[in-house]
């Protein structure tokens, strides 16, 4: 805000408030849901990576904004990347997270002890990730202002991006990062999905917060 011009300062504050309103979780969740449910393709999850400027004018970074996990359409049980010990570890983490959210008594919940699939686990660990200054697939899409579309496990496995390789290990076959206003929309699928202009358009319509 320019302190010498109060009108500019207040309009800037109003714009910031309007942007914040668009970024609240309620609207993000609805946009992600609309994107997933309206898509012709079978996407397993969608994540909105939100851009923020670091304190003291440091580089911008992308952090967790919101996500929607739909799961796998194909009910054929795929080979898991997890050993029995790893599966036990996943369940333990899920129990702890469940206690954190719902209280200690909820740890007896049967659903928590159900096998944690590879894609569920990949979605969960994504919540702890962030991407600084053009790093990772979401960071590159944001930095270049260009969508990145990787279809096929073989292509994901040779990506120079660790997140893409990690996704492939957890059964993702297609990963897409589409830059939008103040962030990046990432979609992943356990199926091979080739580039679709329809999806790009939907992301631009749903996530172009600046109109």
């Amino acid at each position: 805000p320019n302190p010498a011009d109060p009108s500019k300062s207040s309009s800037s504050a109003a714009a910031t408030a309007a942007t914040a309103q668009f970024f609240n979780q309620e609207t993000l969740q609805k946009r992600l849901l609309a994107l997933m449910e309206g898509a012709q393709e079978s996407w397993t999850y969608a994540i909105f990576w939100q851009s923020s400027v670091a304190d003291y004018g440091g580089p911008s970074q992308l952090g967790w904004g919101d996500g929607y996990y739909k799961g796998e359409e194909n009910k054929v049980k795929r080979k898991t990347a997890a050993s029995p010990a790893e599966q036990e570890n996943r369940k333990k983490v899920l129990r702890e997270l469940n206690s954190l959210i719902s209280g200690p008594q909820s740890s007896a919940d049967d659903a928590v002890d159900e096998e944690v699939t590879d894609t569920e686990w990949f979605f969960l660990i994504s919540m702890a990730q962030s991407f600084v200054n053009g790093s990772g697939l979401p960071g590159q899409a944001s930095y270049s202002s260009s969508p990145i579309w990787i279809a096929g496990a073989d292509r994901l496995s040779v990506s120079h991006c660790e997140r893409a390789r990690q996704a492939q290990i957890f059964g993702i076959e297609t990963m897409v990062c589409i830059p939008s206003s103040n962030g990046v929309v990432e979609l992943g699928s356990t199926e091979v999905i080739f580039q679709s202009s329809d999806l790009m358009t939907k992301v631009r319509v749903l996530f172009n917060f600046n109109g």
Binding site: Q50, W64, L124
Partner: peptide, 26 residues
């Protein structure tokens, strides 16, 4: 920003709730 941990917590709560529904319906 404190908004990010809050966002993660809300997303996590929603994920666990949906997972519970999926397990119940399977």
């Amino acid at each position: 920003s404190s908004a990010v941990p809050q966002a993660r917590k809300a997303s996590l709560a929603r994920f666990l709730e949906k997972r519970r529904e999926r397990v119940m319906n399977s």
